[in-house]
Design a protein around this nucleic acid. Structure first.
Length: 263
DNA sequence: GCGACAG
DNA sequence: ATCTTGTCGC
């Protein structure tokens, strides 16, 4: 029974039951691609592209790594000024949905939400490895989870999903508008001289200008903002453990090794 | 029907 | 995403 002993600001009472806002907003995840589209259409109406976060004290990076059907999700929280780590959570799980362009949230969302629930320090802003509103239905993973968690989020993708743009200049800080149906949904940002640009778009409780500014402030000496780099790095470490366990396991040992091992 | 297509 | 060593360019 999902009862919470001490009701607080983060909780809401419903007929004697006490549920966190996350639970109250949650929808089903065991859905078909068609049902997933329907959920996105419903949630898009709840998106707010206006800043709704206080003075930024902390920023989090969220990412997921894979090894076959096993996944490891990491959420790492950093001090916005010093970019020092202040909190981090890891959750491993198995895939329940395939990767389908436009439906990434249904693959990574469930495990990421579990990781957020384990945090001790709730960040003021969250950066995701994927799109925000620069999505065919305006609700990429950053936007979707921003609505469910009711938090300010930013989408920071390494590649384009939708939209048109002109290549930004080679200098660090160069920008180009990412346009979809004659509407600017984000920006193509050159975070270092000459490197491949990243695709920044607001998720939720955030406007485009602030999204770009926050991302730039988190980019020190690499192409990706520090929170995302860290989360990605840690998620990969976890996945490497899966590999070792897999190798040492008996059931999935490769034929050549199995034969030798059995004499 | 033919490409495009976050991770 | 992931498999992967050295190597070309700033």
């Amino acid at each position: 029974m999902p009862f919470i002993a001490l009701p607080c600001d983060e909780c809401v009472k419903i007929g004697g039951d006490v549920r966190s806002k996350e639970e109250k907003n949650m929808h089903r995840w065991d859905v078909t691609p068609r049902e997933a589209l329907r959920i996105q259409e419903e949630l898009r109406e709840r998106v707010l592209l206006q800043n709704r976060f206080k003075k930024i004290g902390t920023v989090a990076g969220a990412d997921v790594s894979f090894f076959e059907d096993e996944v490891a999700a990491v959420v790492a929280v950093f001090d916005y000024e010093t970019l020092e780590l202040v909190d981090e959570t890891v959750v491993t799980s198995s895939c329940t949905f395939p990767y389908i362009p436009g439906l990434l949230t249904f693959l990574e969302g469930p495990v990421l939400i579990q990781a957020f629930e384990k945090l001790t320090h709730q960040p003021d802003v969250i950066i995701f490895d994927g799109q925000g509103i620069a999505h065919p239905r305006g609700i990429g993973i950053a936007t979707h989870l921003g609505v469910l968690l009711e938090r300010a989020t930013i989408g920071c993708a390494k590649a384009r999903l939708v939209g048109e743009y002109r290549e930004p200049q080679r200098e660090k800080g160069s920008l180009a508008a990412l346009t979809l149906k004659s509407t600017t949904v984000g920006a193509v940002v050159r975070t270092r001289y000459g490197v491949k640009p990243i695709f920044v778009s607001p998720g939720h409780f955030m406007n485009i200008t602030s999204a770009i500014e926050i991302i730039m402030n988190c980019c020190t000496r690499y192409r990706l903002p520090e929170p995302i780099r860290w989360a990605h790095h840690r998620a990969r470490q976890c996945v490497s453990h899966f590999r070792k366990d897999e190798k040492g396991g008996f059931s999935r040992m490769k034929p050549k090794q199995a034969v030798r091992g059995l004499g």
